[in-house]
Simulated assay, not measured.
Amino acid sequence: MRSIFISTPQGDNAAMDELLSVARLDERRSRAVAVSARLAKLARHIQAGRLDCQQASELLREEAARYENEARELH
């Protein structure tokens, strides 16, 4: 992601902080919805495939690794 720097007058710091807070909250909400949908999909897959405990736990481990890799790519 690119950093964008905007020159603002000193009095607008509070407004800029508020704008950033709203943007961060919106991003968190979006990520929460995405994770929730992914978990629901995994649950359906586990149930439909009648996976046993070992298979389900392996699927969850793979999903955790997917999130870890995504986090590394973003930083």
Rank of each mutant, 00 (worst) to 15 (best):
51 L>V: 00
6 I>G: 02
18 E>T: 12
11 G>D: 15
72 R>H: 11
22 V>N: 06
54 Q>P: 00
8 T>S: 09
29 R>M: 06
2 R>H: 09
2 R>G: 05
1 M>G: 05
32 A>E: 10
72 R>Y: 04
24 R>P: 01
74 L>R: 02
37 A>M: 08
60 L>K: 05
46 I>G: 00
33 V>T: 10
26 D>S: 15
69 N>M: 08
57 S>V: 00
6 I>L: 09
6 I>D: 07
39 L>C: 02
20 L>H: 10
26 D>C: 14
52 D>C: 02
17 D>S: 11
1 M>W: 01
44 R>Q: 14
9 P>V: 08
15 A>N: 10
4 I>Q: 11
67 Y>S: 07
63 E>M: 05
62 E>N: 11
46 I>T: 09
1 M>S: 07
41 K>D: 15
59 L>F: 00
64 A>I: 15
18 E>L: 14
50 R>A: 07
16 M>T: 09
34 A>K: 11
23 A>R: 10
47 Q>D: 10
40 A>I: 06
1 M>C: 06
35 V>L: 12
45 H>A: 12
52 D>R: 07
30 S>L: 13
26 D>T: 14
59 L>H: 01
19 L>K: 12
28 R>D: 15
57 S>Y: 04
39 L>F: 08
64 A>L: 15
53 C>N: 15
39 L>Y: 01
37 A>F: 06
66 R>G: 01
69 N>K: 08
68 E>L: 12
29 R>S: 11
69 N>W: 02
53 C>G: 15
40 A>Q: 09
65 A>P: 01
50 R>C: 03
75 H>P: 03
73 E>I: 02
28 R>Y: 08
63 E>W: 01
50 R>M: 04
50 R>N: 13
49 G>M: 10
57 S>C: 00
30 S>T: 14
48 A>Y: 06
75 H>S: 12
70 E>V: 03
47 Q>C: 02
25 L>T: 13
18 E>K: 10
53 C>S: 14
32 A>I: 08
